[in-house]
Design a protein around this nucleic acid. Structure first.
Lengths: 358, 358
DNA sequence: CTGTTAGCGCGTTCAG
DNA sequence: CTGAACGCGCTAACAG
């Protein structure tokens, strides 16, 4: 096939062991000029060591696996970059799998990653209801760290998450601080830990303000712009009446919208404006994530920011620690979300001032 | 370490060869009940075959490498999904590398991929000026396909590209059809094949309309929203005069903007509107790519769409064909861009399609 | 139908 | 400081 250390050894008049030593930059055990000679031969023969052979001999693959539910979601690339940045220079490679929100596919991919003997897995689960994936990893003894979403499990599962409950509470409290009382909450898919936590956060805010949590209009979408639009359309009636008739007819049954991600929030803004309902004049909207898009739409979106890059970074670091420590860690870390005030909410008297509108 | 086929063999009272046969679902050579017994033992012992060992024995790694210049660019995930979709089910894994637009890093990553013995590489090059990367792949005999961007090379290089020249011409011709005569062209980074081709396309349109190509105001950015804004600011003067003063003072030195990607186009629109210059009333803007963002900004962006998903798909298919054929293919394929008319251009008298040039 | 025997390319003892 | 020999876990002839 291609050139091996045996070829190098023969050509350089040394043994394979010596070649192996210079290959791995072992300080001890090789004379300076021998080393030079071997290196020269390696270069001349265009030698590329076989990773598979090394993996087999050392029992290490120097790579980790990443499973995400949807690479199209603008949130994903930021986390990926955080992971890449941490891995880089440590000699670790990254195996990418996109489960496309399919739990079966996700399990299959985890199986394949286990076969490839990745040294660890960062898992952003498609669904939280089921802990089969995690069980699978535990049984195979492959170190793992959850990212972004948790899973329902008996055991305590290590992972890196945003404090979704606090974030949701923060977002809704800001809406309440503007006088809103009738909230439409556009949650993400059911069966996700983040959905449950954000809903809890929304209710926290209501309870703290002594408001009735039952008064919240709730819906769940799939994180796309379209689903945000449809949810609002659903509440307001399927038709798209002209602005005039709406204003004349009746006000919308809510005065604020809180969405579980920015894309749905943007969909909501679009649906609202299409009907001539002013945002933020009549209805205020707050999103979640703070993707680039959020600052570019009109009006720019007020949102609860997640530290996506840092999440990826921390997950990679935690995984590396787990691998080094030879044992699965037990804790999860919670990163702080941050409210970013922009143009889909009205200026507050005492709160942080939004930047000037263009 | 973990359980191997030797363990299975002993436990099931057969030889390793037999275990290997059932593992690979070889039809011939194993009795039905033996097969069942072996499978049962594998399940019971939670056997996970070692990919490294198999790779070493077969000389195949069942995975390919992907090197992209910037995973944050919304265009990238779409291509990645196209690749993933094609690989899926074929048992191929995907190694992801982000060169972050750094040529040295890119070369290093290609070297690592070669070591890992990926069966092929899809390369979206950071720079086109240099063909070192391709030479490296050629020497190592690893099959490859270029994606999105080409490289300057003596040899003919296989790849999948949008017809950038035709796309740029299409975009500019549409602008000219609306009466524009003074164009600002916001190109991508210098040294990229796509930049050169798009510039040529822009000039094609001008020449076909018997306009002076020297009259085109040109600038080059880095594909970010910010660089689009800065380029426009640069042409109009650094300050950000109030709308009124601008309108009163002098018209901008151009009546149309063509940008090499959507994000810069959006930056341009923002810079223009910040100065009170109406888009599309006073200045029309056309972008390139058609990312999701394009349809969500206000006004929605008219743009030249690239078939990102299909590009990824085709690249993966071509690579797989190359791998199967045991030899590097020679041709590049050019996919057709498509004009998507939205709100940053004024309605045309004769419909949304660009009229025949004259 | 099944077992035996060699490797795949590299790391790693242990002698010398 | 260097080399010979074995093993990592699996596949692939070749026997039986």
């Amino acid at each position: 096939m291609s050139v091996t250390i045996a070829d190098i050894a023969k050509e350089a008049q040394v043994s394979k062991a010596t070649v192996s030593r210079v290959l791995n930059d072992r300080a001890e055990g090789v004379g300076a000029e021998t080393r030079l000679r071997v290196k020269e031969v390696m270069r001349r023969l265009d030698f590329t060591p076989s990773g598979a052979a090394r993996d087999l001999a050392t029992g290490r693959s120097r790579c980790i696996g990443l499973v995400i539910p949807d690479i199209i979601d603008p949130f994903a690339p930021l986390m990926i970059r955080g992971i890449e940045a941490t891995l880089r220079g440590l000699g670790y490679g990254l195996f990418l799998c996109d489960s496309e929100n399919d739990l079966e596919r996700e399990k299959e991919q985890l199986r394949l990653l286990a076969e490839r003997r990745v040294e660890g897995v960062i898992l952003n689960p498609a669904l939280s209801g089921d802990a089969d994936q995690v069980e699978l990893l535990e049984r195979r003894l492959v170190p793992y760290v959850l990212l972004d979403r948790g899973v329902e499990s008996d055991r305590s599962v290590p992972g890196v998450y945003t404090d979704n409950r606090a974030g949701a509470r923060m977002g809704v409290e800001y809406l309440l601080s503007g006088g809103a009382r009738r909230l439409a909450f556009l949650n993400g898919p059911e069966g996700l830990s983040v959905s449950r936590l954000r809903e809890a956060g929304v209710e926290d805010a209501f309870r703290a303000a002594k408001l009735d949590v039952m008064s919240i209009t709730r819906g769940s979408g799939d994180y796309t712009v379209g689903s945000g639009e449809r949810l609002i359309d659903g509440v307001l009636g399927e038709g798209a009446p002209s602005p005039a008739s709406w204003v004349a007819a009746s006000p919308p049954p809510f005065d604020a919208v809180f969405a579980a991600n920015d894309r749905m929030a943007i969909g909501a803004v679009r649906a609202l404006r299409r009907r001539g309902i002013d945002v933020p004049g009549t209805v205020e909207v707050v999103g979640f994530d703070d993707i680039e898009l959020a600052s570019l739409v009109e009006p720019p979106l007020t949102t609860v920011a997640q530290p996506a890059f840092e999440m990826g970074q921390q997950a990679a670091r935690m995984l590396l620690r787990t691998i080094a420590g030879k044992r699965q860690l037990e804790n999860g870390v919670l990163l702080d979300p941050k409210l970013v005030v922009r143009g889909t909410t009205r200026p507050r008297a005492n709160g942080p001032a939004p930047p000037p509108r263009q």
